[in-house]
């Protein structure tokens, strides 16, 4: 996936578990149609191990990238 491609972003920076994961799940579950790609921005390290398994259960692939000191982008895409 190209970095310059327009992607939808869910910004959950500033939030503590379980809220980043719950908000991501809501985004994937309740939007109609479900998003093909979603970039989740988080600065909560534990979310890196809670969001991916939940997204994978919903049929998404997942890449994690550090974007700044203490910030990560979790790139989800319909596999």
């Amino acid at each position: 996936m190209s970095d310059n491609q327009e992607v939808e972003i869910l910004d959950v920076r500033g939030e503590i578990c379980p809220y980043p994961m719950i908000r991501t799940n809501k985004e994937l579950d309740e939007r109609d149609p479900a998003p093909l790609t979603l970039a989740v921005l988080t600065d909560h390290p534990p979310a890196l191990s809670t969001i991916p398994p939940e997204a994978m259960k919903r049929g998404y692939g997942c890449e994690i990238e550090e974007i700044a000191s203490g910030e990560w982008r979790i790139q989800l895409f319909k596999a």
């Binding site: 910004d11 920076r13 500033g14 939030e15 503590i16 809220y19 600065d43 909560h44 390290p45 000191s69 203490g70 910030e71």
Partner: peptide
């Protein structure tokens, strides 16, 4: 990993 993390939504 240090960063000031400020929740944006008031409900938090």
């Amino acid at each position: 990993e240090f960063k000031l993390r400020i929740p944006k939504s008031p409900i938090r």
